[in-house]
Nucleic acid binder design. Structure first.
Lengths: 146, 146
DNA sequence: TATTGTTATACTCTATAACTATA
DNA sequence: TATAGTTATAGAGTATAACAATA
């Protein structure tokens, strides 16, 4: 139980640090943490509003405002599905994708001081441990954005 | 560089999952993520407003509202410092401390399915890797809350 | 009737700017 | 004058409830 305490502690502190990094980088582009995440999700998906809400753990009404603001900035677009006319699909725009790519690079750079402190095999080990913690199969296949 | 991508990816996803867990547990007690963190910080500190703002990375004006709402719920108290009468010290109340303890236990329980998936030595290894990532000295001494 | 999404409402979180009190 | 906090203001994020359109 004692080792667990230290692990939970390290996980919580690491996560808050990560959020601080992401929040800072996002705010440099006038993006909230949620907008940042939204953009990341849309890089390889074209979900409907309800699916996005489920992904993000938010109410559908929250998504309406979130997507509306992102659309107003030209980062995403909404399109009515032809099959089911109730459904609204959300997609990232070229401008949004470009911004997302720049954000990703900034995050990698911001974390470099930490990741550089680890040897190559430790980076691999840490990745695998985190994936195991999440209950994921570490097949080495392509990883998906958050 | 490729291994770094996977590591950054794992860190980001783990952190968002952690935030989701903390957000859910907090909301079960009508606490925002920030209130949760505030309570955790005050468990072993008695800082002034400005120090708290620095810890949390927030503006002092944000702290005023945050602490005001927590105080209204009886979780923290504000007291004017006798030496410098401009300064306001913030302390957790017994009720606040009790709630913080319950939250901590809930977090440990919520993460157990993941941490149980790791062997004991892997838990130790993961803790050390995260501490190294953060640039901390893993002296084995008592850990501090976020 | 059930589902998808938006709107109205209310509250928290957040920063900026202006203010008060103390030093 | 400089520092510690608060207040006023404004905008984003969030959920609940009521609604519209479609199925």
């Amino acid at each position: 139980m004692e080792a667990d305490d230290a692990l939970v502690d390290a996980l919580v502190r690491t996560s808050f640090r990560m959020m601080a990094v992401l929040t800072r980088i996002g705010s440099e582009h006038d993006l909230s943490l949620t907008q940042l995440r939204l953009l990341g999700l849309l890089r390889d998906r074209r979900p409907r509003m309800t699916e996005l809400a489920a992904f993000l753990g938010l109410d559908k009404s929250t998504l309406s405002g979130l997507v509306e603001r992102a659309e107003r900035r030209g980062l995403v677009v909404r399109g009515k599905s032809p099959e089911d006319r109730r459904v609204v699909d959300v997609a990232i725009t070229p401008a949004g994708a470009e911004l997302a790519a720049r954000l990703e690079e900034q995050v990698r750079l911001a974390l470099a001081p930490g990741t550089d402190r680890l040897r190559a095999d430790d980076r691999v080990a840490l990745t695998r441990l985190l994936d195991t913690l999440a209950g994921e199969r570490w097949t080495g296949g392509p990883t998906n954005a958050p």
